[in-house]
């Protein structure tokens, strides 16, 4: 247990030593909100203000970036460079490593979500979530779905370049087609339907809903889909965990 916490805190520390990842993870989403806000700040869609629409959805996007880049790509790089192999003949076990990285990702995510929320409150009169408990639960469910999902997908990559390619593809497709960055209402029906195969769609619906509309119990479908993804990808990620590619 101490080994796991030690690894989690070290990985968090090392994340902050890398300026570039700090910028992309924390500041880029804020810049995006600010940019979209300067264009659509006064608009009103389905009875929701700009910030009520997009702060929750960009928090959802942050889950995707952190799970694919901070967790998945980094672990693939560790596999490639022999960092994971070094753990192999020690008493630490693979699930402890995955858990440590999941913990690290969660800490980074909480910071990034708070930043977005505070920015929304200061700049765009965002209010705190109406159903705070539901929103927190929704975030937990989303993390539990996305972290193992990304860890599994990136573990299929032979090296970190391939993992980064998988990650960029997933991020961009979901960013533009799941309603996170652009409202689905503006899109043709076929794309609106296609959005429903993207996991981020359910995260966005769930976060927007619990933030503005109703408690988590109103969103049984979204919670069900995300928990399903969580269970399946946790099984796959631990089943196919590899210490090295050799």
């Amino acid at each position: 247990m101490t080994a796991m916490m030690k690894l989690a805190s070290l990985e968090t520390k090392m994340f902050f030593r890398d300026r570039l990842s700090v910028f992309w993870t924390f500041l880029f989403p804020v810049l995006m909100i600010w940019m979209f806000g300067s264009m659509f700040g006064d608009s009103n869609l389905n009875g929701l203000s700009f910030a009520e629409m997009f702060v929750p959805s960009w928090i959802g996007v942050n889950i995707v970036t952190i799970s694919f880049f901070t967790l998945g790509t980094v672990l693939t790089n560790y596999r490639e460079t022999g960092v994971l192999r070094r753990y192999q003949s020690t008493p630490i076990r693979s699930w402890m490593i995955l858990a440590a990285h999941t913990f690290q990702g969660s800490v980074i995510f909480v910071i990034s979500a708070l930043l977005l929320m505070v920015f929304g409150i200061l700049m765009y009169d965002l209010t705190l979530p109406v159903y705070m408990g539901s929103t927190l639960l929704a975030l937990l469910v989303s993390i539990l779905a996305f972290f193992p999902f990304a860890l599994f997908l990136t573990s299929l990559a032979k090296n970190s370049q391939a993992a980064a390619a998988i990650s960029s593809l997933c991020l961009n497709v979901m960013l533009f087609l799941s309603g996170a960055a652009f409202p689905l209402e503006f899109m043709p029906t076929i794309l609106q339907n296609a959005a429903k195969v993207l996991p981020l769609y359910y995260v966005v619906e769930l976060l927007r809903g619990t933030w503005n509309v109703g408690p988590i119990t109103d969103y049984g479908l979204e919670v069900g889909v995300l928990l399903g993804i969580s269970v399946v990808s946790t099984i796959l990620a631990s089943r196919f965990f590899r210490w090295s590619d050799k």
Partner: peptide, 27 residues
């Protein structure tokens, strides 16, 4: 046992002291 594999590394941005403390916590 202790094992030194061929061509392994530790995290680039990990300090020597941190690595020693981390691995020490395994035992």
């Amino acid at each position: 046992i202790g094992v030194q594999f061929q061509a392994t590394a530790i995290q680039k941005k990990m300090k020597v002291k941190e690595a020693i403390d981390l691995f020490a916590s395994f035992y």
